[in-house]
Simulated scan of single mutants.
Amino acid sequence: MAGTLAKLACVLVMCMVVAEAAMTCNQIQGGMAPCLGYLTKGGIPSAGCCTNLRNMVNSARTTADRKNACKCLKAAAAKFQGINPTNAAKLPSNCKVNIPYKISVSTNCASVK
């Protein structure tokens, strides 16, 4: 897992500059690397986690962007073992970020507006 976290951290560093276009799935999933501790163990999400989540939300300006972000977060939630679904669902409120959908493997991303 340490190797995976290191790879995700590297992706995050490479993706810190957010372009005018929406973020790619790799950028979104890489941006969630600082959130893995919170997502698995709970507690308080790091400032880096919340900043990256806020950047993702701010870059998803259109319905298509928000649907894509939803799909990427859903895929990330399913991909990483040990993520607590309750922690994932509470991440936006704990970061004081408004996301128009629940971060969950059961979210219907097609219904995101």
Score class of each variant (00 low, 15 high):
residue 2 A to T: 14
residue 2 A to G: 14
residue 3 G to P: 08
residue 5 L to R: 10
residue 5 L to F: 09
residue 8 L to K: 07
residue 9 A to D: 12
residue 10 C to E: 14
residue 12 L to R: 13
residue 12 L to W: 10
residue 13 V to H: 12
residue 17 V to T: 13
residue 19 A to K: 15
residue 19 A to W: 11
residue 19 A to R: 14
residue 20 E to R: 11
residue 20 E to N: 15
residue 21 A to L: 06
residue 23 M to C: 10
residue 24 T to D: 15
residue 25 C to N: 12
residue 26 N to D: 15
residue 27 Q to T: 06
residue 27 Q to W: 02
residue 28 I to H: 00
residue 29 Q to W: 04
residue 30 G to C: 14
residue 31 G to N: 03
residue 33 A to F: 06
residue 33 A to N: 04
residue 34 P to R: 08
residue 34 P to C: 11
residue 36 L to E: 04
residue 37 G to C: 09
residue 37 G to M: 10
residue 40 T to R: 14
residue 40 T to S: 12
residue 43 G to T: 13
residue 44 I to L: 14
residue 45 P to I: 05
residue 45 P to L: 06
residue 47 A to L: 14
residue 47 A to N: 12
residue 48 G to K: 14
residue 48 G to D: 15
residue 48 G to W: 07
residue 49 C to E: 05
residue 50 C to F: 04
residue 50 C to K: 04
residue 50 C to E: 06
residue 51 T to V: 13
residue 52 N to A: 15
residue 52 N to H: 13
residue 53 L to A: 07
residue 53 L to R: 01
residue 54 R to D: 02
residue 55 N to Q: 09
residue 55 N to C: 03
residue 58 N to A: 14
residue 59 S to A: 15
residue 59 S to V: 07
residue 60 A to S: 13
residue 60 A to V: 07
residue 60 A to Y: 01
residue 62 T to G: 06
residue 64 A to W: 15
residue 64 A to G: 10
residue 64 A to E: 15
residue 64 A to I: 13
residue 65 D to S: 03
residue 68 N to I: 01
residue 70 C to A: 11
residue 72 C to L: 04
residue 72 C to G: 03
residue 73 L to F: 06
residue 75 A to Q: 11
residue 75 A to K: 12
residue 75 A to H: 08
residue 75 A to S: 13
residue 76 A to R: 02
residue 76 A to C: 08
residue 78 A to H: 08
residue 80 F to T: 04
residue 80 F to I: 13
residue 81 Q to S: 08
residue 82 G to C: 01
residue 83 I to H: 00
residue 83 I to W: 00
residue 83 I to T: 01
residue 83 I to M: 04
residue 83 I to L: 08
residue 85 P to F: 03
residue 85 P to H: 09
residue 86 T to H: 08
residue 88 A to N: 01
residue 91 L to D: 01
residue 91 L to A: 03
residue 93 S to E: 11
residue 94 N to Y: 03
residue 94 N to Q: 12
residue 96 K to V: 04
residue 97 V to M: 02
residue 98 N to Y: 09
residue 98 N to I: 05
residue 99 I to F: 03
residue 103 I to E: 00
residue 104 S to M: 02
residue 106 S to K: 14
residue 106 S to Q: 10
residue 107 T to E: 14
residue 108 N to H: 11
residue 108 N to P: 08
residue 109 C to V: 05
